[in-house]
């Protein structure tokens, strides 16, 4: 279970600060599939980064399965990142000079899993993604959908408790987006929490729950079908 209490986060600017998260209270149960929506600059990616311990916060509290995540050193945060979340990014974030299988197995490298074991698990995971024939391909030799599958496989290879996906379909066509969402739905079906940051209402509609942010504040939080459509003033905008 992820529990955020009054999370505040501001970025320093010349002559002041820019508040991005303004007192976020949020609880996400294990096994939920949650969409975080909001306009550009609403703070949704920052929220995802805080959840994934990629970024810190200024005040408030964050518990992960009852463990306090505030005030972690960079080394402790790295340890949590290697075990608790799996990340999926809009632009895939694959290392260009590493083959698909090597990219996928990289989190296990940082968990000090032996090479043979890494290779075995990477092949199994790619097999589940229908990508086992692409293990020796460089990212430049893969299509967008294939790259995202490798990225999802990389996120799943450490058997994380939560998948944090930042615009996972943002760079894909609608057909491939549908495939990727099917994969994420399947992942969620196995009990893994999936949190997706998206602009797209139809992507959010495939999740169980939708949280809408505006100007660093949660303005809506409910079942996906019940969250209101965008308004003229930008609140709830999905573009």
């Amino acid at each position: 279970m992820l529990n955020l209490r009054g999370i505040e986060k501001a970025y320093p600017l010349a002559g002041g600060t820019l508040p991005v998260l303004k007192g976020i209270d949020l609880t996400i149960q294990q096994g939920e599939m949650v969409a975080i929506m909001g306009s550009s600059g609403s703070g949704k990616s920052t929220l995802l980064n805080v959840l994934g311990l990629l970024d810190g916060f200024d005040s408030g509290g964050y518990d992960l399965d009852g463990v306090d995540m505030s005030g972690l050193s960079e080394k402790q945060a790295a340890r949590y990142r290697s075990q608790f979340p799996g990340f999926v990014f809009q632009s895939f974030k694959l290392i260009a000079f590493k083959k698909g299988g090597e990219n996928e197995a990289l989190p296990l490298f940082y968990q000090k899993v032996p090479r043979r074991e890494r290779q075995k698990r990477a092949m199994e995971m790619l097999g589940k993604m229908g990508m086992d024939d692409r293990a020796d391909h460089l990212p430049s030799e893969l299509s967008g959908g294939q790259k995202q599958r490798v990225a999802i496989a990389r996120a799943l290879i450490t058997e994380p408790r939560v998948i944090l996906a930042d615009e996972p379909t943002g760079a894909l066509d609608s057909s491939t987006s549908h495939e990727v969402m099917s994969v994420l739905r399947e992942v969620n079906g196995s009990g893994i929490t999936v949190i997706i940051v998206t602009h797209e209402a139809d992507i959010a509609a495939k999740c169980d729950r939708t949280i809408r942010l505006h100007d660093g504040v949660i303005i809506e939080d409910g079942r996906s079908g019940e969250v209101v459509e965008p308004t003229a003033n930008g609140a709830g905008s999905t573009d």
Binding site: A78, R79, S82, K93, L94, I95, A96, L106, P107, Y110
Partner: peptide, 16 residues
Amino acid sequence: TKELGIRRSLGATPVR
């Protein structure tokens, strides 16, 4: 920079 960011996000500690 991006590659190092990916490594950090995947669990590379500062020492690594």
